[in-house]
């Protein structure tokens, strides 16, 4: 159980603050640098033989979709850890991730719609892929609403954690929707049997953009978690001050 005890160490909020204090500037720099490189590559990439210039929407759409799903997976794992082991950091991390995931999923939906209008001939259809991603977006909103719906934040956190675990069944549905049912949305192009079906000239910018989005998400997630921890500390200090001189000071 060595790995588990290591994990416990990072679940300590004070240790997390010390570690990320050093880590965060580097992560932020790497995210901005890779985003700059990715954007330059995205605009230098050749047009697609069928879609023309419209293919460039993919450089934002696909990474946003990946992060939207990955963020949910992170949130669900953090929620499970919070429910089972009651780690002080897990609830904070899960709730810090939710608005980020909602944002990335919204970017995915909007850019997909902008691509669909000229290519498919419609802004929106109710096929299995589009609908399941829309449900993902609403799961994020429901999670945020539920976490803040109780006077007692602990009860809100527990209810929201259960919702996020229930919603996790949606992730494989999104991933395999284009395989299990016929959809208007095209099947997977990058992560598939037999390798990517995207030419390297278009795939490389996509992968750099995916890395940039990944770093951006991790940096923002850490930043939001830190902010939430600091806010909690301030609340505790205020309460102590309000409830008077009897409380011990540290």
């Amino acid at each position: 159980m060595a790995t588990l005890s290591n994990f416990h160490r990072f679940a300590n909020p004070a240790r997390f603050m010390r570690l990320t204090d050093v880590l965060l500037p580097w992560l932020a720099f790497a995210a901005i640098a890779s985003l700059a490189v990715g954007l330059v590559m995205a605009f230098r990439a050749p047009p697609d033989y069928q879609q023309g210039e419209t293919v460039r929407i993919m450089f934002v759409h696909v990474p946003a979709a990946w992060i939207g799903m990955m963020c949910y997976a992170c949130m669900a794992v953090a929620s499970a850890v919070a429910l089972i082991w009651r780690h002080p950091l897990a609830d904070v991390a899960a709730q810090a991730a939710a608005p980020l995931g909602a944002g990335f999923t919204l970017i995915c939906l909007v850019t997909g719609s902008l691509w669909g209008a000229p290519m498919w001939g419609t802004w929106w259809v109710w096929d299995a892929r589009l609908t399941s991603v829309l449900i993902l977006f609403f799961l994020y909103l429901g999670y945020i609403a539920l976490a803040n719906a109780f006077d007692d934040p602990e009860r809100g956190a527990r209810a929201a954690a259960i919702l996020s675990l229930v919603g996790a069944v949606n992730l494989p549905i999104i991933r395999f929707s284009v395989v299990w049912w016929n959809t208007l949305h095209q099947p997977a192009s990058v992560v598939r049997m037999g390798g990517p079906t995207i030419d390297p000239a278009i795939l490389d910018p996509l992968l750099v953009m995916a890395l940039a989005f990944q770093l951006m998400f991790i940096a923002l997630w850490i930043l939001r978690t830190r902010t939430a921890l600091i806010r909690r500390k301030i609340d505790t200090l205020r309460q102590r001050a309000a409830f008077g001189s009897g409380a011990e000071r540290d």
Binding site: P47, Y49, W120, I198, A201, I202, L203
Partner: peptide
Amino acid sequence: LAKHDEKYMPPEV
């Protein structure tokens, strides 16, 4: 509605 396939490549290719 036009259905796009999963192939992406430059016209030269």
